[in-house]
Simulated scan of single mutants.
Amino acid sequence: MFISPMLLETAPGPFSHSDYIFEPKVDGHRLIYSQQSGVVRLYTRHNNDCTQQYPEILLPFDSDIILDGEVACTDPETGLNDFEAVMSRFSTRQQLKVQQLTKTLPATFAIFDILQYKGHDLRKLPLMERKAILQALQLPSSSFGLVPHIEGAGEALYEQIEGMGMEGVVGKRKDSQYISRRSSNWLKIINWSVADVYITGYKKSEFGWLAAVPDPTGRMRPVGVIEHGPSPKHKQAFRGVCSQLITGEDKNNVYLEPRIQARVKMRNWTKSGLLRIPVFEQFIV
């Protein structure tokens, strides 16, 4: 049984408040764990069945249950969540390969909420009552863990998260019920990184600026596409300048001289040297 998850709104910045608990934001992908009549199914936030991808998380609890959390993999070198590793797990369907990956890229289910248990719907209970039920659970194996939380001290937790290079913090109202939509009762504060890039072109079919950075030889190395962030004024200013910089085009893109520089915020650099989820901040003049 799938329950559509409760989603986060974005807070303007780190904050502390006695009405909230604060959790580290796990850098994986959302997972709804559903055990019905003893049979376990796993679902993404968009109701895609991913049961076969994570054999180590198919162990049953003592009774039927629906849990909300994130599935994550840990980089053994840094001890931090490795988003690319969990995406590799998610995209692998071939069963022999999946079994190999349970050993080389083991997944953990980091649980932060409980929606049903022993035939009872718990979603109308306040968050702290749901957390108490969660804390009392016997977890099936070390592939399961509970996301820790602290009360009130969101700024102190964010400072720790920032220092460790982790993804961010989630603040949740203690009295919040669980609702299957985006809600201001749950807020995320992302620990963004910043990079300066050159805009070397734009997409034809939909909005997107091609971003690049100089490599050690001075040549431009593509690092991704900026699809979020610029205001209508930024887009207008870009259009006013870019027509003078066109160097060529193909079926999908128009290419520009690397003259326009921009600052972007992003989650991190991927292992292949790309910007992860770049968001335009400002032009650099």
Rank of each mutant, 00 (worst) to 15 (best):
P55K: 06
P55D: 08
L58E: 03
L59M: 06
F61Q: 08
D62P: 10
I66R: 00
L67K: 02
L67W: 02
D68P: 15
G69L: 10
G69W: 03
E70H: 01
V71C: 09
V71W: 01
T74V: 12
P76Y: 12
E77H: 12
G79I: 02
N81G: 10
D82C: 11
A85F: 13
V86I: 15
S88E: 13
S88I: 11
F90H: 15
Q95M: 15
Q95S: 14
L96M: 11
L96Y: 09
K97C: 15
V98H: 04
V98F: 10
Q99N: 13
L105C: 13
L105S: 12
P106D: 04
F109S: 07
A110G: 00
A110F: 01
F112G: 03
L115T: 01
Q116Y: 09
Q116R: 08
K118I: 03
K118W: 01
G119V: 08
D121Y: 13
L122D: 00
L134Q: 05
Q135G: 07
Q135D: 12
A136Y: 12
Q138G: 01
Q138F: 08
S143A: 10
F144D: 02
G145K: 10
L146Y: 07
L146V: 13
P148D: 11
G152A: 00
G154I: 05
E155G: 01
E155Q: 07
E155T: 06
